[in-house]
Nucleic acid binder design. Structure first.
Lengths: 347, 347
DNA sequence: TTGTATGCGTTATCAG
DNA sequence: CTGATAACGCATACAA
């Protein structure tokens, strides 16, 4: 319950009987600038006094703030962070863990519609930022002006100023489809959000087609159900499949959320999963293992992806942008095999 | 793409032809200290130069940092934030929205095992903190020493230094049980995590008993299934109910996670929900609406609770602790009626 | 190798 | 009402 008074670098220097400069050198690892003896005296004093540096002062003095801005998208009404979305929350987990481990802190925020991020990054002297989601062009222009390293996640801005961390969506689509093919399925529907050029979904779609082709299967556009990334659309598509496509024995949904809807829709239509129809999702969000039956899906390891983004950013900050390879980091994918895929009995 | 140079308060003062002090006054709303004319000259200059204040400098100069520390628990392995838990992520959403709205930023982090939060809060000159989860005693002692306002969520530390924001768990338990009773059920099981003295769960349990009593129903200890807050336990309890308690027509699970397990367990045992057994959960996490059938539950409005915590903290910061009523804030509860409760046909 | 002095951007004090 | 000026805590160029 001691009142707790701020210990400054000067207190330390007096205690150790050296100058403030010496203390600063030791603190910043500028060994070689001070003698072994001074260094140990300083370290002892720091220990005894329980010195805690003031980052505001550091930041002001022109060095690092050790602060990273992390931006995630907001809900439609622009009021809340989209943190309920497991995708973003896992990403944030990965980022935070890595940052903390390296002595950085994270300012997590959304950005108000129409506002930029320039203010925040200037106010706080951010050392860097990780941006998720998609914004208007001027947003990115502002970002470039502050000249700190930036990592983009899930944003397809094609500008070499920004670092990106992605996954191999094409391979993921391939894996999912291949799994179904390997289990004897030949009529595989794709249920997905809008397929936009260069979007995540398009890549998964491409993987789907590649797997079909490789297996010598015919690609049937009628088996592609494309609309929106939502639980509701999954239901809808499943209803359509159950009603009009008896030949379809398997569904690849490009997102777990959609897959959950498909499960529900099939069930409502009296189809059993996986006995009548097999289903594979994408993402492996936590509900995937809790739904009934547990969903087989493509695991993104989203947390690892967050950590990767943080890594890349820290490297750019501490070793300069030049230290980074030009190619984007790509996170690994794997299958989470559960209970929604069944081997098709040879008919 | 202009290079972007830092505009200081001095630049503004020169542009406006006044002193830096005058600028500072205007910026901080110390009207009355300057003339109307000076004020408008300053405002114009700020606008023209696009001046952005440096919070590091502000913080160093002894005023507010406008930074709030938000701490959430970590996973077992102490590596990641527990943000995957919808409860925490929603809380964070609520907090962030309110803070940003008031010009504050949030540093979101976990706390390493054995470490305290004193370092962070000193380093960053935090104006306050919101702490979720439960920590060792020394952690709270440290917190008190920094003398900034603190709000605790879900922590039952009984110390008037800390503010708390809670929900009326007892009322929630009552609401859920009452709903079932109103639908004609008389044999209602309680499936729950460990009932600890003064814990959240105990209160819900008390509400359950009160509703029974009020309806003139007999409280049967055999209808209480108490073990752990997990999906798996829900399954297990449901199996036990299906196997050994044909008289039970309804279940109140004190957590949605458990309720999900109950749904699954009943289904595995060949019981239909809600035709054979009705189920009510607690929390209203997002999966509640996605599961099959959609779960009727007690909505916590977790986001609102986060906002409430932020409100309370900001008030303590800006108006002093004294401005706060002594009684803790209590967030409202409501029922989310979906499809797992059915009116019992009179037999 | 060590210490002194200055500046970083703001706020606050205290004479004008 | 206004304007110099001294902190705030730290890092660093420069002098010793």
């Amino acid at each position: 319950m001691t009142p707790l008074k701020r210990i400054t670098i000067r207190d330390v220097s007096e205690r150790a009987g050296v100058s403030t400069a010496a203390v600063s050198y030791v603190l910043n690892g500028r060994e070689g600038k001070v003698s072994q003896e001074t260094a140990s005296k300083v370290r002892r004093a720091v220990e005894e006094l329980n010195y805690i540096p003031d980052f505001s002062a550091r930041s002001l003095a022109g060095t690092r703030s050790k602060l990273i801005g992390v931006v995630i998208p907001q809900t439609e009404d622009q009021k809340q962070l989209l943190l309920q979305n497991p995708f973003y929350s896992e990403l944030v987990c990965g980022i935070e863990a890595r940052l903390r481990q390296s002595g950085y802190h994270m300012i997590l925020s959304g950005v108000d519609k129409g506002e930029g991020y320039l203010d925040t990054s200037m106010q706080r002297n951010l050392d860097g930022a990780i941006i998720m989601g998609i914004y208007q062009e001027s947003f990115y222009d502002d970002l470039k002006r502050v000249k700190v390293p930036i990592v983009l996640i899930d944003s397809y801005v094609n500008d070499s100023y920004f670092q990106t961390v992605s996954i191999d969506d094409e391979a993921g689509g391939y894996m999912a489809t291949k799994l179904l093919i390997d289990n004897g399925h030949t009529n595989i529907a794709l249920v997905t959000g809008l397929i936009r050029k260069d979007g995540v979904v398009e890549k998964r779609f491409l993987g789907y087609k590649r797997a079909l082709k490789e297996a010598g299967l015919f690609y049937n556009p009628d088996h592609v159900f494309e609309h929106s990334v939502s639980y509701e659309y999954g239901q809808e598509a499943a209803a359509a499949i159950a009603a009009g496509h008896p030949e379809i024995t398997a569904v690849f949904a490009t997102s777990d959320l959609v897959a959950m809807g498909v499960l529900r829709g099939l069930s409502d239509a009296g189809k059993r999963v996986p006995e009548d129809v097999s289903v594979v999702g994408f993402d492996d969000i936590p509900v995937a293992r809790m739904c009934n039956p547990p969903l087989t899906t493509v695991r993104q390891n989203i947390v690892a992806r967050g950590a990767m983004a943080a890594d890349r950013l820290l490297k750019a900050i501490e070793e300069g942008e030049a230290s980074l390879a030009d190619d984007p980091s790509v996170a690994r994918l794997e299958l989470a095999i559960r209970q929604t895929v069944q081997r098709l009995a040879p008919s």
